[in-house]
Design a binder for these strands. Structure first.
Lengths: 107, 107
DNA sequence: TTGATTCATAACCCTACAGTTATGGGTAAG
DNA sequence: CTTACCCATAACTGTAGGGTTATGAATCAA
């Protein structure tokens, strides 16, 4: 059902890249120039990060004249949410099993 | 409230390390030797990954004789869950704002 | 047309880190 | 006591990838 979160984890692991994605989530659509401002890195670096984010399906790009607008892609984090709840579910199941065991030992 | 998910993302970005963590979640407590089996890498590599997972608070270790048992640490993924829902919340807010705008334009 | 602006790509450097083998400390077994 | 086993650490290597500068393609302005 849910696709592998591998690419998602690798893409979001870099702090600079994750910060760019967070800004797009918080403030909405941005041009590359706007994103470069206060990103702490050069414009080519930002472009590469945006390329990686796009490859992971985390952002969309929209060309308008000579500038490119990027925006966060809703739903792209779903595999991440699925994975975390699955992991959380596993130890929950074992806690339940332990609970059952204790109950059976009790009686 | 929620701590930075930076270390969590970096730690879970590696596929081998994430696979070890998944196994601990699915199958419960495991010794290093058991985890080395079918991990595809050497025992020292597994030990290093377990060290990294422990540093990120994702696993606990329990010493018993000459072997060390590792287990997934429940709740360690909470910052990750917080971060994702926060990001999801941001674009949800903007969708709501857009919705409001459209309603006001409509009347 | 010329010049300025915006972004993407190329080419390169350098560091972080995942992997390895070698080894030692601690514990159980003979 | 000696041997075998389990794990952690040290030391080293190779590579993936994030950073840079340089440059070109495309668009807008003068």
């Amino acid at each position: 059902m849910s696709s592998t979160p591998d690419l998602l984890f690798r893409t979001l692991a870099d702090p600079t890249r994750r910060a760019i994605f967070e800004r797009l989530c918080r403030e909405g659509e941005q041009t590359v120039g706007a994103l470069t401002t206060r990103s702490g890195v050069s414009q080519p670096a930002v472009s590469k990060h945006l390329g990686a984010l796009k490859l992971a399906g985390l952002v969309r790009d929209r060309h308008e004249g000579r500038q490119t607008h990027y925006s966060a892609q809703p739903g792209a984090l779903d595999p991440l949410i699925d994975w975390t709840s699955q992991m959380a579910g596993f130890w929950q199941n074992r806690l339940d099993a332990l609970d059952d065991l204790l109950k059976r030992m009790d009686q």
